[in-house]
Amino acid sequence: MAHPWLIWVIAVVTGICHAKQAAMADYYRQFHLYFLKGEDGSELETASDLKAKLKNLSWSHDFWKKLTLTVYTNYTVQQEATAPAMQALRRELKQRFPSGRIPQSFRDAFRAASLPLMKYTNILSFNWRTIALFVSLFASMPWLYFAFELVVLNNLLVYMIIRHEGICRKFTAELKDGKY
């Protein structure tokens, strides 16, 4: 190979893409679970709540807890930045239903709209990556794994973000129009 460093660059880029794909798949799955099971059945948190928790921790007394919460807060900030329409919907829901009691009709409608996207969150999970890795290794073409990750899964991620953001914009508009 004329440029052996190139594989390391591709591997790092693929790792960064993988992190983004996994983060957004998890975020959309948690939002779907929020409407399915409520706050108790979802791990959906906001960066602002996490930042407030972070302020109450000390580096000298709570080093490991503060370190892990700092990483998780930054992870959540990145998720929120990637899904601005979802953040607008969350704000609208909080404003209209401050008690957190979102009408069941809204929950059902949102879940029905987001359910088809859940298969994509599953594809972006570990199992499909593992299958692609093993297939590429058994075929003695490890570069196929990177191609799968960079081309197929990134395109799937973009599609999923566009679709989910559209769903969120639609439901935000319906809330503002007084449908729910």
Results as ranks from 00 to 15, higher is better:
Pro98Lys: 04
Leu6Tyr: 09
Leu133Arg: 06
Ala2Ile: 15
Met141Ile: 12
Asn122Val: 06
Pro4Ile: 13
Gly38His: 10
Asn127His: 13
Ser140Gln: 15
Lys37Asp: 08
His61Asn: 15
Arg29Ile: 02
His32Trp: 04
Leu6Cys: 02
Phe31Ser: 03
Tyr72Asp: 05
Leu54Gly: 03
Gln78Asp: 07
Arg91Cys: 00
Trp5Asn: 13
Met160Ile: 03
Thr172Lys: 04
Ile161Asp: 04
Ala81Tyr: 03
Leu36Pro: 00
Lys55Val: 06
Phe110Gly: 01
Leu124Thr: 14
His32Ile: 00
Arg90Ser: 09
Val158Glu: 07
Leu150Trp: 04
Trp8Lys: 11
Tyr34Ala: 01
Pro98Val: 03
Val9Glu: 06
Ile10Val: 11
Phe97Asn: 02
Trp5Leu: 15
Ala109Ser: 12
Val71Lys: 05
Trp143Gly: 04
Lys66Glu: 05
Lys20Asn: 09
Leu44Met: 12
Val71Arg: 07
Leu175Asn: 03
Lys20Gly: 05
Leu157Tyr: 06
Val71Phe: 12
Ile131Cys: 07
Leu124Phe: 12
Tyr27Met: 11
Arg169Trp: 03
Lys65Thr: 13
Ser114Glu: 02
Glu174Ala: 09
Leu124Val: 13
Ala52His: 08
Leu33Arg: 07
Asp108Phe: 01
Leu50His: 07
His61Met: 11
Ala132Ile: 08
Thr46Gly: 13
Arg91Leu: 05
Phe31Met: 03
Pro4Gln: 10
Lys170Tyr: 05
Ser136Arg: 04
Trp128Asp: 09
Leu89Tyr: 00
Ser48Trp: 07
Tyr28Phe: 14
Gly100Cys: 10
Asn127Ser: 14
Tyr27Ser: 12
Ser60Arg: 15
Pro4Trp: 08
Ser58Gln: 09
Met141Glu: 14
Gln104Ile: 06
Phe138Val: 12
Met118Ser: 00
Thr14His: 02
Val71Tyr: 12
His18Gly: 08
Ile16Ser: 06
Ala173Asp: 11
Pro98Phe: 02
Asn74Gln: 14
Ala83Ile: 07
Val12Gln: 02
Trp8Asn: 10
Pro98Trp: 03
Val151Tyr: 10
Phe63Thr: 12
Arg101Ala: 12
His61Tyr: 14
Trp64Phe: 14
Leu6Arg: 06
Thr76Asp: 04
Trp59Ile: 09
Ala47Asp: 09
Arg169Lys: 15
Phe97Ser: 01
Lys53Trp: 08
Ser125Phe: 13
Thr14Glu: 01
Thr172Met: 01
Ala23Ile: 02
Thr14Cys: 04
Phe31Ala: 00
His61Trp: 14
Asn154Ser: 11
Pro116Tyr: 00
Tyr159Asn: 05
Lys94Asn: 06
Val9Trp: 06
Lys37Phe: 11
Thr82Pro: 01
Ala2Gln: 11
Thr82Cys: 10
Lys20Leu: 14
Phe138Arg: 07
Leu44Gln: 05
Asp49Ile: 05
Trp8Cys: 09
Leu89Trp: 01
Arg90Gln: 13
Ile161Phe: 08
Gly38Trp: 08
Ala52Ile: 10
Asp26Tyr: 14
Arg169Asp: 07
Pro116Val: 01
Phe146Ala: 12
Phe97Glu: 03
Ala11His: 06
Cys17Ser: 13
Thr130His: 11
Asn56Val: 05
Phe146Trp: 11
His61Ala: 15
Asp177Gln: 15
Arg111Trp: 00
Ala23Phe: 08
Lys66His: 05
Glu39Tyr: 07
Arg163Thr: 10
Arg111Pro: 00
